[in-house]
Design a binder for these strands. Sequence first.
DNA 1: ATATGTGCAAACTCTTTGCATGGAG
DNA 2: CTCCATGCAAAGAGTTTGCACATAT
Lengths: 136, 136
Amino acid sequence: MAGTQRLESERGVTRDTRQRRAIRAAFLSTDRPLDPNEVLELAAGEHSGLGIATVYRNIKMLLEEGWLTAVELPGEVTHYEVAGKEHHHHFHCRMCGKVFELNACLPNVQQLAPQGFAVTGHDLLLYGSCRDCSPA
Amino acid sequence: MAGTQRLESERGVTRDTRQRRAIRAAFLSTDRPLDPNEVLELAAGEHSGLGIATVYRNIKMLLEEGWLTAVELPGEVTHYEVAGKEHHHHFHCRMCGKVFELNACLPNVQQLAPQGFAVTGHDLLLYGSCRDCSPA
DNA sequence: ATATGTGCAAACTCTTTGCATGGAG
DNA sequence: CTCCATGCAAAGAGTTTGCACATAT
């Protein structure tokens, strides 16, 4: 996973195409992480004929320019959300499959690693049923 | 992690083949979660000619009979470990890529979900460099 | 003897890439 | 007018499945 990032100077001007605008709009119109297919469906509403390859390429560019961040969910394909949010985690609804943001974390997370292990980051994921899918 | 188990009666007699013995041995000889390819390499040492499809099929059977549990790691292919261990989490070394077990958890994890969300499980993953890869 | 398990290869899903065309600048 | 971006299709990884043969019981 190292060496994925490139210097911005390696890329020329980044053009503002109709497709990229539709893809950005898809993320901005949703408050939860999206996977490439969800992006395609949402963005295709604004511009049909959009190809999945373009979605992947734009996601990659938007990641590189820091507009998106990857949300990697165990057992799910990688989702993406707009960057710049505070440190947070996610809730994965087992009923509807949607992923929600949690504006919370736990202290002392780093202390769980044994001696000799250096912790540089962590992920926390809750599972269950979301507000709309919970029985009560 | 719910609903993974099936009634044993759905499957006829489970045979004890050389391949399955080698696959089980691979897991028992290692103290960290393995992915299908690691299993193939380890088990092929005991029985060359082993096919990757057999590894996948056996992993699935061993999951169904509850001998294995899936360890789904963000950004990694699914790993597996022998079942029956206590609740624990994992550490993913960014240097060597290996996954280690952490015999610890945090209390109050469920309290992170907002009102209306029912939490049935969670995953916690630490990233960094392991004992062998840490500078000091 | 007989049905389950295996190996191989084809099929499938998700993601990436090559190439000719389209469009932003 | 130039390149960068797009669309399509082919190529790649990882995983699953169909089929004939092997083998545990």
